[in-house]
Design a protein around this nucleic acid. Sequence first.
DNA 1: TCCTATAGTGGGTCTCGACCCACTAATTCT
DNA 2: AGAATTAGTGGGTCGAGACCCACTATAGGA
Lengths: 158, 158
Amino acid sequence: MASEDPIDAPALPPTLLDLSTYLLSRIGKTARGRLAERLAERGLRLWDMAVLAALADFGPQAQRDLVRRLGLDPSDLAKVADQLAAAGHVERARDQADRRRVSVSITAAGRELLAELDALARAVQDEVLAPLDAGERQVLQSLLLRVHQGAGERRSGL
Amino acid sequence: MASEDPIDAPALPPTLLDLSTYLLSRIGKTARGRLAERLAERGLRLWDMAVLAALADFGPQAQRDLVRRLGLDPSDLAKVADQLAAAGHVERARDQADRRRVSVSITAAGRELLAELDALARAVQDEVLAPLDAGERQVLQSLLLRVHQGAGERRSGL
DNA sequence: TCCTATAGTGGGTCTCGACCCACTAATTCT
DNA sequence: AGAATTAGTGGGTCGAGACCCACTATAGGA
């Protein structure tokens, strides 16, 4: 055969494109993937960023609280905290009031890192949302935020 | 300790909530998860639905074309097609023009199934987008569609 | 003091999706 | 005819993420 070039019609079925569910899932995956990719270049995962953000936003906390807040497995958090501590991005100290607890706090280096990661995430965002102008992005952001808050979150999240 | 009840502040870090990237990824995962969950109850996966939709929307095609259109691995498509054929939702026939090809077409039963799955997906959508009214959902859908189309899709998708 | 519950940790397992390789059958080019 | 190419298939691997269990240390109540 010779002339079957015009294949580049990766057009997806309208039946699917018409479902916000589908678009959300697909775009979400892209966003997640690209962000994870960038983080991986630095040897980090999404959870590392989430933990840093939680510490920066809410101050030092016991791992217990991070677990509840972020919805990840205690055992997994221990590992994340380990890595972050080893790299000097967080510090762990026994809580003097209740010595079972380990209070985790972000370090200056951790804050710096977080700032970089945030910038990185925004770069990814610019890529993904390229087709939208500033105003539209704003609208999207607020719609997503409402969806997120309203939704009865189920189980663990990213 | 006694009064630490008001834990239910699973409030996520604003630093993250402020990133559309993050919300997209998180909500997308929820949407995907719930849809997959429902499909699983019927022994189906997302790809099954995608294949059915492609066949319904674009008519009978060689597996080769489905592979290109949907961006999944040829080997994986073979398995999906197998299952769908076994269940009577699609039919496979050697293409008489080029007998290497297997032309896949959707059956009446397949169309019925697809209609059900579509309804199911919309039900999930209602759950996920609960906080938004009809107009807002419309806006969201069109923004997502533009993001999807504009985005230089990378690699395989869901 | 003994008993139960909680915080953290280490070391796994299980499932899924993406991917890859080897192989057959059919086709096309030379 | 012979060589090179393409469609489809079967049988895998690999990595990521969520999850689970057993165990230690500490705390609080009876």
